[in-house]
Design a protein around this nucleic acid. Structure first.
Lengths: 210, 210
DNA sequence: GTCTTTCGATACATCGGTGTATCGGATACA
DNA sequence: TGTATCCGATACACCGATGTATCGAAAGAC
């Protein structure tokens, strides 16, 4: 009996090398930037020859895309976990704390992520894919905000809850930009919390972070 | 009488070709991204040979830096103008409108600017220079906010006026990220205004944009 | 264990970009 | 207009990266 007629026999070695290539690529991309990395460099960092690369990917672009998907999905999972952690109506500040911890964890990832952004900005297909990913993230945040409704009143200027979720993402992106330059992760965390508090709580609301 | 003993005779042709190279570089960088552009491409776009390039710049990096400085200074000037336009205490929303108009004018510039950001994120010297530029911008905004004090009460969560200026820049950066993907300039403008209003005005403040 | 299929290393041809050295025409200045 | 200087075009040598074709070895199926 054969599991699949058409697909090539899936070997264990293949998935290992592929994972190794992706890991090495992450390190190299983070260090030098996508635009300045050659296929050879990735292979050398992973300890393979170029034959291995061409056996697994068609181009650097394809590898980059696969790398982004892998890591982005992982982070999205962690964020979703941090958002779902507390009960149906617990306080927003705690959730903010946990999410902030996850989102501003790894500077290298922010570097690669931004590289991917400028890459996507010039390729409509990639941009579309990234936009969808961001939309999913926003939805998760909106769901969480919905659960907190009543506890904290949202400022009306942002419009509905979806607008508020949009604002959260914008704050994250804005803080990321600054962080890429000054590399002050702890400062960025504090700063992001402040921003989110300012955005999500009514100014007249006595309940604030800390 | 000689204007300068040591410096080479400043020719008119030189400044023209240099400007042409910079203009062409802007177009090419915007279209393909810094990482994917060769010296030859820039020269071809400008209508020169590589000889002209090497006569004016030492490397693509140097040209990129010069290009960024040129355009960034130009924009900073326009922003300063938009901030200084009204009297010593006129309304913030009008200033927000004008600044938003200037900052979200040219998508190509945002592309190149972001390219430069990821470039700076990997080179401490360049990062330092960019940070200083951003600090000057923040100071201009803080000055403007100071003039408006009393008219609109700032939310306390942001801390002092400098914190508020910081938040303005973060909002701008955040909106830029989204804009790079969806290319909706008009939407981004509206959205940025909303964000700034939410950040700069107390939630209980009845005075809002529009 | 053997046999078949797949994976990845090696070798090769090729191409595009880089930097330099040189030279003729353009430009400023008297 | 003459002339000294500068600028940019051309030609050349070089290098590094790319993609492909081939082959030995590893891994799964039985």
């Amino acid at each position: 009996m054969v599991t699949d007629q058409t697909a090539p026999r899936v070997t264990r070695r293949r998935v290992r090398t592929r994972a190794n290539l992706l890991d090495a690529a992450f390190a190299v991309f983070a260090a030098k930037g996508f635009g300045r990395v050659s296929i050879e460099e990735v292979c050398e960092a992973a300890g393979y020859s170029r034959g291995a690369f061409y056996s697994n990917f068609d181009s650097l672009d394809e590898l980059f895309f696969a790398l982004y998907r892998q890591r982005a999905d992982l982070i999205a999972e962690q964020v979703a976990g941090a958002l779902a952690l507390d009960g149906p109506d617990l306080d927003v500040p705690a959730a903010v704390d946990r999410v902030t911890e996850v989102l501003l964890l790894d500077l290298d990832w922010l570097l690669v992520k931004t590289d991917f952004l400028v890459h996507a900005a010039r390729d409509p297909d990639v941009a579309q894919s990234l936009l969808e990913h961001r939309a999913r993230l926003r939805d998760a945040i909106a769901d969480r905000l919905l659960r907190a409704r009543g506890l904290t009143e949202l400022p009306a200027v942002l419009g509905d809850i979806d607008g508020a979720a949009h604002a959260v993402v914008a704050a994250y992106d804005g803080v990321t930009t600054q962080l890429l330059l000054d590399k002050d992760v702890e400062g960025a965390r504090i700063w992001l919390k402040q921003l989110l508090t300012a955005l999500l709580t009514d100014g007249s609301d006595p309940q604030r972070a800390h």
